[in-house]
Design a protein around this nucleic acid. Structure first.
Lengths: 328, 328
DNA sequence: CTGAAAGCGCTTACAG
DNA sequence: CTGAAAGCGCTTACAG
């Protein structure tokens, strides 16, 4: 390659790296030769010499025993956004799905495989979060979904989302509004949504109602059971704010099974903006985080470890009014 | 590291690599030292020396202009399976989502970043497939979704799936069965499903009916429009086999809008097994490929380029009877 | 502005 | 069974 362009190896390297200390003429000559020989820089060698890898590792935490193919679609969308955000900065992403204790691994930096680690996924896999928490001290990390306050985290603006959803229900004329969620759970995200709900109810002078989800069940079953419990209580309700879409989908189904029409008899709003909500009847109204921003924030957080104080951690959310909340 | 264990660098390398030409005693000593120093082999250097990377590149092709976060969930599941299958063989995966012509890139091998390339994603992005087709000559590749017969491909057993779905409809007592799909399209996968449909109808001595999808619309709208067209034709029908789930979901919605009850008045079966079908009313019956096998086959295909003849290319499918086809 | 040389951290013939 | 040495393909001080 060097001899084809009639220059030294160093010059080739500099020309290809776009160094300014190079004549335009020689650069062009090198570029032409590279094209002709279909030459590409070997990143292994470049990285070895440079020290950095130009790569981020992304770990997706699954529920124990869950296959990669049936992960909550929310995390798939998030994964896509992270990869896209990295790609925009010419950073590669190496991704892995991890669920079992034996396979937890995040030390990509130690092996020279990545410059940082992004961990996203279900809050429920505690063993996993504990494992990755330990890495956050001496590794560049960013987390989404961690149950621990102390980790570097990025989250939806859950509080604001809770308010948006609840206000929308109130605006729809609902007065007996129930929150299906986990009011005292370690799921920080859930807790924040709950607090937003409380604030909006308080603001409107309405009394908040709750159904606690049953941790033993899967999300869909949690939603069904919550509605079932609610109806059995014979307590009137005309609006539901479900803490996440998968639960909302279960709730919606149970409402229909029990002949409660949505939205005419009960308005329903979820949280997450998963695509499945587009295909229900009625389509599920929901709070959706800005995925592009989410991906960008995660990437930025890992890369700019220095000024920790300035890291923006709240991903803005918006109401997706798809039809499960009554219109006035 | 070497001096800590009191041996040479070569010995450390051999011990860590599990070479048999090493005393158990020295190996243990090295391992102990490694643990103590929290030492990990730098893969950049190892790869540079060894030549191979232990990594596969996975490119997910999106529709032009589509964001990574709203890709057909089928491909997300497939992506998960590929990563899981690679992981099982201790292979890393670097993944990227590509949609626009300017960003097409698959020469990871040339840059020493991967040993092979797996491309999956929407058939509809022709520019993308043409780009990657060109790479298949001198790169280790495997494709899912390519419109080209000549590429190394892995696909669902679409023909068998078409038969399974159609037979199920026939068993449900349907006689006027309509296939919503693309009978003469370049979408090989769709064409194969269509042929399965034809075969099963022929086997039962029934006359097949069709509605062609409108290429200009998105999947959901295609399904709606197909049902709408069908009803306008006033041609009686009691069963629908939709060529993919996203189309089936649109069809299901339109059927409900037009007050055709599923499954009592019309049975409906889709193809792909996407999770959104779990949340519709009724849940969507579908043909699901074995995702684990799909991931494993793709990985194996890239790695074992040598005996091309023996590559298994058909991923088995099964009927997921979720409720949109009448039970007898 | 360009070249000759050193060195990134490994693995692997080559000796012994 | 183990060590000394070469070399993987780059980048980057160091000279000029």
């Amino acid at each position: 390659m060097a001899e084809r362009a009639g220059v030294s190896q160093s010059t080739v390297s500099r020309a290809l790296a776009g160094s300014t200390a190079i004549t335009v003429a020689t650069r062009d000559r090198v570029l032409a030769a590279a094209k002709e020989l279909d030459y590409m820089v070997d990143t292994r060698a470049a990285r070895l010499r440079k020290g950095s890898t130009g790569t981020l590792a992304v770990v997706v935490i699954c529920r124990p025993g869950e296959m990669a193919s049936d992960i909550n679609p929310f995390y798939f969308s998030l994964l896509g956004s992270v990869c896209a955000a990295a790609s925009k900065q010419d950073i590669e992403t190496i991704v892995s799905f991890q669920s079992k204790e034996e396979e937890f691994f995040g030390r990509y930096e130690d092996r020279g495989q990545a410059d940082g680690l992004i961990v996203i996924g279900t809050t429920s896999n505690h063993a996993a979060w504990e494992h990755f928490r330990a890495l956050s001290d001496d590794h560049a990390t960013a987390f989404w979904g961690s149950p621990y306050e102390d980790l570097d985290w990025i989250r939806s603006d859950n509080y604001e989302g809770g308010i948006l959803a609840t206000r929308r229900l109130i605006d729809a004329g609902c007065r007996d509004i129930v929150h299906i969620g986990a009011t005292g759970s370690p799921q920080l995200q859930f807790h924040e949504r709950y607090e937003g709900f409380l604030a909006a109810m308080d603001e409107a002078g309405l009394e908040p109602h709750f159904v606690e989800i049953d941790g033993a069940l899967d999300r869909d079953a949690q939603g069904r059971k919550a509605v079932s419990d609610l109806l059995d209580r014979k307590q009137p309700f005309d609006g539901i704010f479900a803490v996440c879409d998968s639960i909302a989908l279960g709730a919606l189904n149970e409402l229909r099974n029990r002949n409660v029409d949505v939205p005419s008899q009960c308005s329903l709003i979820g949280f997450d903006g998963i695509m499945a909500g587009n295909h229900t009847r009625p389509p599920l109204s929901t709070i959706e985080p800005d995925f592009d921003v989410a991906g960008a924030m995660l990437v930025q957080t890992v890369l700019e470890k220095q000024d920790e104080a300035n890291i923006k951690r709240r991903v803005p959310v918006r109401l997706l009014d798809r039809g499960s909340a009554r219109s006035l």
